[in-house]
Design a protein around this nucleic acid. Structure first.
Lengths: 206, 206
DNA sequence: GTTTGTGAAACGATTCACAGCT
DNA sequence: AGCTGTGAATCGTTTCACAAAC
C-alpha cells in the first residue's frame, strides 16, 4: 500500500465516528459534503482521502453509510479487537484504564504493570496491578498487541526496549520522552503539556 | 506576527524542553545539529523554525542555552503562569488535575466543576469540586485563562458556549466532539481513542 | 440535476546549499 | 574552520475544476 499521510488516517477515524452517528440516526446515505461539514473540512478533501483506498461512493447519490463505515473499519484495522497492556499505574494510567472510549473503539486493556510495591496487587477496574518484574513472564503467557506507556520519562526507554523484545509492535507513549525503536515498531507520543503550550502560544500571538 | 505553522510551534515546545535539560546538565551552548538530533529532526529545520522569530544564534558557535530558552519561553507565552479551569471531574479529569506536567509548564488548575451531585463538594488534590451551576459566578469572581474540557461529548458544546461567554479564550478539549467557537477562541482537541486507531492502522497496513 | 473520482494547479512545509559572520 | 540564517529547490498536501456516472 502506498504511503498515506498521517493527517489522512486521522480524518478517516473521524469520518468513521460521524458515520456511526449517522447510522444511529438511521441516515442511509451521506455525501462527501455532509461528512466534510461534520468534520470541519471540505468535500474534496473527503473524496481525496477515500480515493487512496478505492471508490466507495455512487455518483449523484453519495455513500451508503453502513457500507462506508465497514470499509473504513477495514482500512483502519478496526475489524478486530486489540489486547493492550498498560505500563504504569499512576494518575494518567488509572484514568485511561477506565476510559470507555478505548473499549468502544476495540481496545481492551488486559493488564497493568507498575514498579511501586504499594500499587502491586491492588485492583484497578477489575485488573490486578502486576509487578513490572513479571512483565516478560506475563506477556509471554498472554501476549498483547499494543502497550500504553505512562511511566516517568526516565523509565520510558528501558521499558520500551523490553516491550520491543517481547514483540509489542505498537506503543502509545504518554511519557515526555523520545523513544528509540526499530523500524517495525510504531510509536505515537502524546504530550499533554505540549498541547497546552500550543494554546499559550496562540493566546500570546494575536 | 506572520502565520507560523502549528508543527513549528510544537517543535519549539520540544526544543525548549531539551534546552531545559541541557541547562540542567550545565551545557552552555548548543548547535542546531545537537537540538535536531535530540528532537528527531534536522538542523535546517531547527534553524528555519527559529528564523520565523529572529536570529538568536552566533555563527560558528551555536546558541547560548539559557538565552535561547528564555527567547522560546517568550515566544510561546510561557513567561507567565496560566489559570486553568477543569470542566468535568471524571476519570480523565481526576488524572489531569494531578498531572504534574501541567504545573511544571506553568498551568495551574484552579477550579473543577461537575454536574454529578455525588462529586460536588469532594476534594480533589486540594480543590473542592464545584457544581457546574456555579460556573458563571465562580469564573466571574476568579477568571481563568483557559479551560480543560473533559465532559461527555453531548455536553461539550453547551459548556463551551458558557465558557466563551465568560471570556475564556483557549480550550483544551478531550471530549470526542467538534466544538464550534468564535474566531477569537482557540480550541485544541485531543482524542485519545483516535491515537490508538492510528496505531491500529499502522499495524494493519504493512 | 447531483455527486463522485481524479488529474492539474495552488499552496505550504521541509530540505538543500551556500554566502556571511564569528 | 564552524555554524548560522536564508533564498531556492524539492517534496507533500490540499484545493480546484470538470468529465463521468447515476
Amino acid at each position: 500500500m502506498r504511503k498515506v499521510a498521517d493527517s489522512t488516517v486521522r480524518r478517516l477515524s473521524l469520518y468513521l465516528r460521524f458515520l456511526d452517528e449517522f447510522e444511529g440516526q438511521g441516515v442511509e446515505t451521506v455525501s462527501s459534503a455532509a461528512l466534510a461539514q461534520r468534520g470541519g473540512t471540505t468535500s474534496a478533501q473527503v473524496r481525496k482521502d477515500l480515493s487512496f483506498f478505492g471508490s466507495f461512493g455512487k455518483r449523484g447519490l453519495g455513500y451508503f453509510v453502513p457500507e462506508l463505515a465497514q470499509r473504513l473499519r477495514q482500512i483502519l484495522g478496526l475489524g478486530r479487537r486489540y489486547r493492550v497492556a498498560m505500563i504504569g499505574a499512576g494518575k494518567i494510567g488509572s484514568a485511561l484504564v477506565q476510559y470507555r472510549g478505548f473499549q468502544q473503539s476495540g481496545f481492551d486493556i488486559v493488564s497493568i504493570f507498575d514498579v511501586d510495591p504499594a500499587k502491586i496487587g491492588t485492583q484497578w477496574n477489575g485488573l490486578t496491578v502486576r509487578s513490572i518484574d513479571e512483565l516478560d513472564r506475563d506477556l509471554r503467557a498472554q501476549p498483547v498487541d499494543m502497550a500504553v506507556l505512562v511511566t516517568p520519562a526516565d523509565a520510558a526507554q528501558a521499558v520500551t526496549e523490553r516491550l520491543v523484545a517481547l514483540g509489542v509492535k505498537a506503543i502509545l507513549n504518554f511519557a515526555p520522552a523520545q523513544l528509540n525503536v526499530p523500524d517495525e515498531v510504531v510509536v505515537k507520543t502524546v504530550n499533554l503539556a505540549l498541547e497546552l503550550e500550543t494554546l499559550s502560544y496562540a493566546l500570546t500571538n494575536r
